[in-house]
Amino acid sequence: MKPPAVEAEGVSVRAGEHFILEDLDFAVPEGALLCIVGPNGAGKTTLLRVFLGLAPLHRGTVRVFGAPPGKTSARRIAYVPQIKTLDRRFPSIAIELVLSGLKGRWPGPVGREERERGLAALRLVAAEHLARKPIASLSGGEMQRVYLARCLVGEPRLILLDEPVTGIDAVGEQDFYACLENYRAETRATLLIVTHDWQVASYHSSHVLVLNRRQIGFGPPAEALTENTLRRAYGHLGHMHDSLRGSGGPADV
């Protein structure tokens, strides 16, 4: 039997005396799309870092495709960090950023074969025309597409995305998720997406993890993304999308 794509057993992460994550227990099957939702400071980014092997565990076990995170081939895992953390002062053109995802180091002079692979990845996200543009001149939406191309170029089996559509308009967001869904359908890759958008979590995901340092809910959206779990995670729900209150949404549960 195939191991889950990612698995957390009793996972806790601490910074000094303070727990960032506490007692997480869940397993995400291969080919799933997991949305991780929770308020600011809930530990969502830390959880992605745990699966990348970048955040040391206080206790518990994490496995990625059945192996400890550091032991899984980095080439099979792609990570799209929050775009706001990107250093735009770095001298680079878009295709170099894409190829860094293929090579696992920064590219020097780009050969013909590499260029073709980079362009093919940019074509997948309709961004081929950006290949030679300096990253400093790209808009937020363009940059996110370039990052997605960077992520897809290595044909990963697991993709971790941290608030990938922040600052992108509605059309750009739809295109972005369409690209991801296509890739997932073609390759059965597993996607872990940190998002603040409950609607995205509700309609795009196969699984949802509601997190606020502790695991508040986990499972298919209709089970995990309920008014009760959201209220426990956020304290109050504030403005809730009408669509979420409709059929299949958390308010029904």
Binding site: L52, A74, S92, R105, G108
Partner: peptide, 20 residues
Amino acid sequence: LWGRWAYATFDRDLAEADGV
């Protein structure tokens, strides 16, 4: 090592996530 130093100069997390 130029390519790895350059990668970490651009983004330490990305480089680390890629096994550098």
